[in-house]
Write a protein that binds this DNA or RNA. Structure first.
Length: 876
RNA sequence: GGAGGCGUAGCCCAGUUGGUCAGAGCGCUUGCUUGACAUGCAAGAGGUCGAUAGUUCGAGCCUAUUCGUCUCCACCA
């Protein structure tokens, strides 16, 4: 099979993926002879399609799972999608709106029908996109957070927690989104600083004309819900007011003045209006003082009948009107600009209202303790480690989790009420009648669960929980969870306490945190900026491997990465380089029987590249084990390009273009071996192209996907040959440099005079020196003095090389170079001497270091002498 | 208010436990169609590692302070 000149991914990526899939390579089954390695995918939301951030997440996971699979683990990457309750519902409502329908018009049943259609469409699309990325997911286990399996798990968990008293219903202050008309958990609120005003309002004191208490507020529209004004008990200004009664303006309601430590003397006026129904702190104050909780706002953000004449008005309109009216009646003392943080719904971005509402909660205190413990005792490790602090911070200050949502798309809360006898049934199977009185009029709770309630169970619900299936037994706990730092609270933390509570075991051993993908200017990708990158377009243009390479190259754990066209291009260039190197190897291997390495006679170059390969394997494996994929990738990249292509391939040309068939066969065999091993190292990162090339190698019998990952072998490091080749390479580089610096034409071949006591090495490798450095004839001389003509020189470690000037034109440049070299050598000498003169260094530094320094000094002194000698000669 | 990240070549970033680590890529300069590759090859230029002080025989790496920048958490009405 003929390889094309340039790498062209479109030709093979689709075909290869299909082939893998058909052969069943992605499927993992419990196997006692193998060790399991499991990753569950962070299920993408079915709200739309995959973005570049997903591509990063999936590429990391796929690379890890492919690595482990090749290492011989029973590697399972379990795929799936998330119903994303509120996010999807928002999208569907938008879609309906464009059709001119509201969700209420459609009704719950009709709405859910549309939602499932949506799920089919977008869920399917996401799966296709994952496949195009090359994801080696076990599709036979594809899950969805609302499928039968996961729903059963949700039901089981809810009932268990309820029966333990860890789920309860209560009226508390929650975050309410008036736009989505649902409660939100604390984590679902995003705060941002906004310019507003601090309004100072006079509340008249009852029975004392012209006396006012001035309260400062940012939310005057909630004043109708005020049930007290609080002052600090130690505030001398207001001591006499405590216990008195105030008249709430505009509605002329009587409210007391209470004292509470919560009030800060320094802030505002020192008097705080207390609105228990609309502020979390006020709610607490209200509890302490037994205050009435008066809710003045409707679910949609309009004012209700308790707000008097403002009834029905939107909250912001009401704020404006209240201020105007207070001003009109002279009760607005003043207002000043004020910046404060306002909470917004993480889905629709509208500002949320703290509101008292009856909701379902999970009691967190007991669940959090063991979840903290498993991280403290290292059962679960965060990479990078600094995220453990963020985790502790959240877990240690956690409040009860509001899990009910006033939405339709999601897991409906498994609670049934009996209107006849008031029985509440929390059960695993849908009941048809009241278990107490037998009434059939029972009805189910209208609300659904927070979408994260089901995601929290993902590592075990997908494997069969509550049933102890063979899969659950074998693959749980999973090994690594790969995700962005943005969902540590939403998801990672909740999976940890859920796993511990329901499985009695951690859900995963380590958490690999990555950052977000930014654009080429370092900006976050966003719809408003329009700077989003569609991974599919990148695949269309460059291929999936290039996309993957770009995402992985330079990923440092936990930090954000930039994505740019330049990056894509340099990734593609690398793959193209590798492609062509392979093409070279294959062209030369044609018609030659490839020998196993053991039967090859290895020369110094072969041993050198094998040693380099060996240490590359060691380093790459080490980095992979640490999930440091960026480092691992750059390690193979460097080996492939700088060692294999730039040096080894060039070195083999003397053999390949020579006449000796045995040497040729040996060389081809080594080339094939090294290439094949390198392809394996690269396969987890760029699976398609490595497979395509691998299939073209002679003697390939299987897919590279299921081949064995290269292993480090101490016997395959040839230390002496490494040293020899370093010398040879030094000589070649020196000759090249001299030629360039003296302005010799590239095509011009030069003679080379060498002073050395290691003539054998030069003789053994003279073919390479001649070919790679453009050298004509190599002669040995005993010393510089023996040379009669004008030469340019280079002093190396153990070698002095001289090139007769001949027609080489410009030696002034060489003099310049020598001078600057002299300068740096003198610098080194000064540094070494300084160190060695330092008593502290001699006595306290390790001995080998001191010795090394002494040797260095000697070496540089010798170098200096020779450089000066040469300089003197040129200048004469 | 609390916590954390980052600040190294023109740009974007690597630098494991302090001692050949001052590095890669892109860009730049010079020269090359050298029988795999111009998506390439060869040779170069370019940085007092944000600032200051300290610990140490020795600091990009440790400590303190400071400046700049970004992020997360809390949310004093």
């Amino acid at each position: 099979m003929e390889m094309q000149k340039n790498y062209n991914p479109q030709e093979f990526e689709g075909r290869i993926y299909k082939d893998w899939e058909e052969k069943g390579y992605f499927t993992a089954t419990p196997n006692d002879k193998k060790i399991p390695f499991t990753i569950v995918i962070p299920p993408p939301n079915i709200t739309g399609q995959l973005h570049i951030g997903h591509a990063l997440d999936e590429t990391l996971q796929d690379s890890i799972i492919r690595f482990k699979r090749m290492q011989g683990y029973e590697a399972l990457w379990l795929p799936g999608t998330d119903h994303a309750s509120i996010a999807t519902e928002v999208k569907i409502v938008e879609m309906l709106k464009s059709e001119g329908i509201s969700k209420e018009e459609l009704g719950r049943e009709g709405f859910l029908k549309r939602a499932w259609q949506w799920k089919e469409q977008y869920g399917g699309r996401i799966v296709e996109q994952l496949k195009r990325l090359g994801s080696s997911c076990d599709w036979t286990k594809l899950a969805f957070t609302m499928d039968e399996r996961c729903s059963r798990a949700v039901r089981e968990v809810f009932v268990n927690l309820y029966e333990k008293g860890l789920i309860y219903q209560g009226s508390k202050i929650i975050n309410w989104c008036p736009c989505c008309k649902t409660a939100l958990s604390d984590a679902e609120v995003e705060y941002s600083e906004e310019d507003s005003y601090f309004w100072h309002i006079r509340y008249p004191v009852k029975g004392e004309p012209d006396r006012f208490v001035v309260v400062a507020t940012t939310r005057p529209e909630t004043m109708f819900g005020d049930t007290a004004v609080a002052v600090n008990p130690n505030d001398d200004r207001y001591k006499d007011l405590i216990g008195k009664t105030l008249i709430l303006p505009l509605v002329n309601k009587e409210i007391p003045v209470v004292s509470d430590d919560y009030v800060d003397l320094e802030f505002g006026t020192g008097c705080v209006k207390i609105t228990p129904a609309h502020d979390p702190n006020d709610f607490e104050v209200g509890l302490r003082h037994n205050l009435e909780v008066i809710r003045v706002m409707n679910d949609d953000g309009t004012m209700n009948e308790l707000s008097g004449r403002y009834n029905g008005m939107d909250r912001f309109e009401c704020r404006k009107r209240v201020i105007e009216d207070l001003n009109y009646i002279g009760l607005l003392e003043k207002f000043e600009p004020h910046k404060h943080n306002v909470g917004h719904c993480y889905r629709c971005k509208n500002s949320v209202e703290p509101i008292v509402s009856k909701q379902w909660f999970v009691k967190m205190e007991e669940l959090a303790k063991p979840a903290i413990e498993v991280v403290k005792n290292n059962s679960i490790k965060f990479t990078p480690e600094r995220f453990t602090k963020i985790y502790y911070n959240w877990m240690e200050n956690i409040k009860d989790w509001c899990i009910s949502r006033q939405l339709w798309w999601g897991h409906r809360i498994p609670v049934w009420y009996c209107p006849d006898c008031g029985e509440v049934m929390v059960v695993k199977e849908d009941p048809t009648s009241c278990r107490k009185c037998g009434s059939t009029k029972i009805y189910q709770d209208e609300d659904v669960l927070d979408t994260w309630f089901s995601s929290a169970l993902w590592p075990f619900s997908t494997l069969g929980y509550p049933e102890m299936t063979p899969e659950l037994k074998y693959f749980y706990p999973t090994d690594v969870l790969v995700t962005g730092y943005d969902i540590i609270f939403f998801w990672v933390a909740r999976m940890i306490f859920s796993g511990l509570e329901h499985m009695k075991r951690i859900p995963f051993k380590s958490v690999l945190i990555h950052g977000i993908v930014r654009d080429d200017q370092g900006r976050k990708m966003s719809k408003s900026l329009g700077n989003g990158i569609d991974p599919l377009k990148v695949i269309d243009e460059y291929g999936a491997d290039t996309l993957r390479f770009s995402l992985l190259s330079g990923v440092a754990q936990g930090s954000d990465i930039r994505f740019s066209k330049e990056k894509c291009e340099s990734s593609r260039n690398f793959i193209n380089k590798m492609w062509n190197a392979s093409r070279f190897v294959l062209m030369n291997a044609e018609g030659i029987e490839v020998l196993p390495l053991e039967k090859c006679k290895l020369n110094v170059c072969d041993k050198w590249i094998l040693s380099k390969l060996n240490s590359c394997i060691k380093n790459v494996t080490l980095s992979m084990e640490k999930f440091d994929l960026g480092v691992a990738l750059s390690e193979v990249h460097d080996f492939m390009w700088y060692d294999f292509c730039d040096w080894y391939i060039e070195l083999t040309k003397t053999a390949l273009y020579g006449e000796n068939q045995v040497v040729k066969q040996n060389t081809v065999s080594v080339l094939i071996y090294v290439l094949s091993e390198t392809l394996k190292l690269l396969h987890p990162f760029i699976p398609f192209v490595t497979e395509e090339i691998y299939q073209n190698l002679p003697n390939t019998t299987q897919s590279i996907m299921v081949s064995q990952y290269p292993k480090y072998n101490t016997r395959k490091t040839y230390k002496k040959d490494l040293e020899k080749m370093n010398s040879v390479m030094d000589i070649i580089k020196a000759v090249r440099a001299i030629k360039v610096q003296t302005g010799a034409p590239n095509s011009k071949k030069v003679d080379l005079l060498v002073v050395t006591n290691n003539q054998k090495l030069v003789k053994d490798t003279q073919n390479y020196i001649q070919k790679l450095a453009g050298v004509n004839e190599i002669k040995f001389v005993s010393s510089k003095q023996e040379i009669n003509e004008k030469v340019v020189s280079q002093i190396l470690n153990g070698f002095e090389i001289y090139i007769p000037l001949g027609e080489l034109v410009d030696i002034s440049k060489e003099i310049e170079r020598l001078k600057s070299e002299l300068q740096s050598v003198e610098g080194e000498i000064a540094r070494a001497e300084g160190k060695l003169k330092n008593e502290g260094f001699i006595s306290k530094a390790p001995k080998n270091l001191v010795d090394a320094e002494k040797q260095k000094l000697e070496k540089y002194l010798g170098l200096k002498a020779k450089i000066m000698l040469n300089l003197k000669e040129y200048e004469s």
